[in-house]
Design a protein around this nucleic acid. Structure first.
Length: 458
DNA sequence: TGTATGGTTACTCAG
DNA sequence: CTGAGTCCACCATACA
């Protein structure tokens, strides 16, 4: 029975490959894309994407590379050989940006793939995961013991090259899978603890959002500064093009339990709603005077949304009240400089902002009128992604990186820094964070060097 | 309202 | 371990 299923899967996969090939051929990009992907693979191999232990990378790295080379050699289609050889050793990934026309329209996962090893089992597992997980639902609500948090060297990996702009856990209680986006437009996947990562390049510029559909992990939306909104569809094995903007997309969000609409931060202060049911933009408002950096929905009241903006404000909005096709802010939270994030607490009762004015704002009370500003150095400079204080598993703690390679844990109750997580294994500054909502204590910090550090509770 | 410019800063790799 | 090279982000300011 199992082998029959596998055969079905394999047939479907072959069909996908054939259809995608036809699609690419129709676009007259086939040979070009194949060459590009191989070229990129060579580049990828010059770097190690797996750092198990910061202590001894020199003994492990060559082994990983050798394995990948043999896999890649086997994976090269016969019609485009000859480019083999390790003489190609560019120092910077940005040197070989492919021509823009490759980015238009749907992109097959095969041509977007940059990791050398086969991704067929990974793609298959994405579909299996969704089926398995639909059985069990509901969050785990344990209390977090800060002292129990630790960083196991096994839970460290280099998922991409370059600066990570976005990191998220799959919303799954059964697997510990991470998706990261970087400044080059890569999307990387890592099953925590595994020896390999799956790397794709569906975009040409920094990734601004990754949205994994809660009950269908084979569908993952990605937004990018290149103005594209794509949908990675593991079943069809493509990165489909959903929406294309003339302006940059800075953020991507979705209310809880609402998969019909996507909310995009577009251009200089715009909020756009994309309706999947009709495949159209259903609304667009100019909410801010400058770019919107985050969009966050209140999970208790899904019509309430918070935006943070480089116009030095964060605002809350009620999407039910539209006057003359305009939205009016419920509240405006002002900072002295750009606001990098505004997130509702898990209960929805508090809001936390992070600003370049070197403060973290915490607002609670019925109308979020109870405000406290906590000092926190947020000048990350040119090379790092900006800091964004993120809520943990309850309304008690926020997590944010600091410039000393630590994770500051801010108590929203005491309204001050409670402690700092530090580890000799954490050899770079964690800038972007995500929690695993199903596993209390599982916190990932992502760096500007492409690494992820997954803290766990023991 | 838009363009030009300066300042801030960490990571990687070669030796 | 040290230091050169990266890099073109993003904000704040100045000026038309």
């Amino acid at each position: 029975m199992a082998s029959e299923k596998l055969t079905d899967y394999e047939l479907k996969r072959l069909e996908n490959i054939r259809r995608n090939d036809e699609m690419m051929a129709a676009l007259k990009l086939h040979s070009k894309a194949t060459q590009l992907s191989n070229f990129k693979r060579q580049r990828v191999e010059t770097k190690s994407y797996r750092v198990k232990s910061e202590k001894k990378p020199k003994t492990e790295t060559p082994i990983v590379i050798r394995v990948r080379r043999s896999l890649r050699t086997r994976g090269i289609p016969p019609d485009c050989g000859g480019l083999d050889g390790d003489s190609v050793c560019p120092t910077t990934p940005s040197e070989e940006k492919p021509p823009c026309d490759v980015s238009l329209g749907p992109l097959s996962m095969a041509s977007a793939r940059e990791s050398a090893h086969s991704d067929s089992s990974f793609i298959e597992s994405l579909m299996g995961m969704a089926q398995h997980d639909s059985v069990q639902k509901g969050k785990v609500v344990d209390s977090l013991e800060l002292e129990s948090l630790s960083l196991d060297p096994e839970n460290i990996a280099r998922v991409t090259s370059g600066r990570i702009t976005n990191v998220t856990f799959f919303p799954s209680s059964s697997v510990r899978m991470l998706a990261v986006g970087n400044k080059y437009g890569n999307i990387g996947f890592w099953n925590v603890g595994d020896n390999e990562v799956h790397l794709y390049r569906p975009h040409q510029a920094p990734i601004s959002g990754i949205l994994i559909q809660p009950h269908c992990y084979s569908k993952i939306y990605t937004s990018c500064y290149d103005g594209l909104l794509r949908l990675m569809d593991a079943e069809k094995e493509i990165f489909d093009l959903v929406f294309e903007s003339d302006e940059k997309i800075y953020a991507l969000s979705q209310p809880t339990n609402e998969t019909n609409c996507l909310y995009l931060a577009e251009g200089s202060g715009g909020l756009t709603i994309w309706d999947n049911r009709v495949g159209k933009q259903s609304s667009h408002w100019d909410l801010h005077d400058s770019r919107i950096n985050t969009i966050d929905f209140n999970c208790e009241s899904p019509h309430i949304v918070a935006t943070s903006s480089s116009d030095a404000t964060a605002c809350t909005w009620d999407l039910r009240y539209i006057n003359n096709n305009n939205l009016t802010a419920l509240r405006t939270f002002t900072h002295k400089r750009s606001v990098q994030s505004a997130y509702f607490s898990p209960s929805g009762g508090s809001l936390a902002t992070t600003s370049l004015d070197n403060t973290i704002g915490i607002y609670s009370g019925v109308n979020y009128e109870d405000a406290t500003l906590i000092s926190h150095f947020n000048q990350t400079g040119r090379w790092l992604s900006t800091f964004r204080a993120k809520w943990g598993w309850d309304d008690k703690y926020l997590f944010i990186g600091n410039m000393n390679r630590g994770v500051d844990v801010v108590s929203a109750v005491q309204r001050k820094r409670a402690m700092t997580l530090e580890s000799p294994h954490m050899s770079a500054i964690p800038c972007r964070f995500a929690i695993n909502i199903y596993e209390v204590g599982m916190l990932v910090g992502a760096t500007s060097g492409g690494q992820v550090y997954v803290w766990t509770s023991r």
